[in-house]
């Protein structure tokens, strides 16, 4: 995985033109992700009812007014799903981006500066990687409560150690190339080297990583919410909706549980379809996600 940047630049693949057009599966994934993003933006506006409004009976059957029926308190399930889209997609996206920025800054600078700093960073990454992510999250949440920004920050930090490791490996190869040498000789500042010289060349190999991390963010946030430690009521993301409607199963009213569960699954499958396609282009796939 270290030399993905180099191989993707080599004219070994079918043609020298960028990448082939996405196949049907990739298009499915792209469609799903776009729909998810759009819903995250407009979802709360097009929702027919408010998040906390009780408008029907407990676990009501779907009808013309409540298209997906009612939830555990008789709130409109569809409205809550639409409101939840912003939290699920939004938190996952922001956390992943933050984690990437932090991870890339740390990883790239380690690759560029080398020496003691690099040794220290590598050691720090190793310590974080030997910490089960869920435990890190639980400890932080225990001390700082499930505030929205605490969740975002925790997930970002968990990502950053993994991104830093991959980013460092990729940047190592690029930092050794001539144009970076030239930039150094020209007296460019460190930030300029990292941002203007190294970063552009890592976009392709790191795109796959971004997809994997995004999926992981969605799964992780949903799991925390499902455990009751993520998004707190009355707000709800899709994970906490599964949690609060668990009792519906005893009444055989499955839709209240299945709707949010499938929403998560469809979104993550969608992201992974894109990742798989991107991975096939750059020789990296889900299988390389060795350090979960």
């Amino acid at each position: 995985m270290t030399d993905a940047a180099v191989t993707s630049a080599a004219p070994r693949k079918r043609s020298k033109r960028a990448r082939p057009r996405p196949d049907a599966w990739a298009w499915t994934g792209i469609t799903i992700v776009i729909v998810g993003l759009v819903l995250a933006v407009v979802g709360p506006w097009i929702a027919p009812f408010g998040v906390g409004n009780i408008v029907t009976t407990v676990y009501a059957q779907p009808d013309a007014q409540n298209l997906l029926g009612g939830d555990v308190l008789g709130r409109d399930l569809l409205s809550r799903l639409l409101h939840g889209a912003r939290l699920t997609v939004g938190v996952a996206l922001v956390a992943t981006i933050l984690g990437f920025v932090l991870g890339m800054a740390v990883g790239f600078s380690a690759a560029e500066i080398r020496g003691r700093y690099d040794d220290f960073i590598t050691w720090l990454i190793d310590v974080f990687l030997s910490f089960p992510p869920i435990l890190l999250a639980l400890i932080v949440i225990a001390s700082l409560s499930s505030d929205l920004w605490v969740l975002v920050g925790t997930i970002a930090v968990i990502h950053s150690s993994r991104v830093a490791r991959v980013g460092r490996a990729v940047a190592m190869n690029i930092a050794a190339l001539e144009f970076v040498e030239v930039a150094r000789a020209r007296g460019e500042k460190l930030t300029s080297i990292l941002v203007r010289e190294i970063w552009p060349s890592t976009i392709r190999p790191l795109a796959v990583e971004f997809g994997l991390r995004l999926t992981y963010s969605i799964l992780f946030l949903s799991s925390l919410s499902f455990l009751g430690l993520g998004i707190q009521p009355p707000d709800a993301d899709w994970g906490s909706m599964v949690r609060e409607n668990m009792n519906a199963m005893q009444n055989h009213a499955y839709i209240a549980v299945l709707a949010p569960a499938f929403a998560i699954a469809i979104l993550t499958v969608g992201v992974n379809l894109i990742v798989d396609w991107l991975g096939a282009q750059s020789g990296r796939g889900i299988s390389e996600e060795l350090t979960k």
Binding site: T215, L219, S222, S223, F226, G239, V242, M246, M249, Y254, V257, A261, I264, A265, T268, V269, V271, N272, L273, D276, I286
Partner: peptide, 18 residues
């Protein structure tokens, strides 16, 4: 396997219980 990697474990659990 892509499918099972993509969906959260609690969703699998909920489906199995159901």
């Amino acid at each position: 396997t892509v499918f099972f990697i993509s969906i959260p474990d609690f969703v699998i659990a909920v489906l199995l219980i159901m």
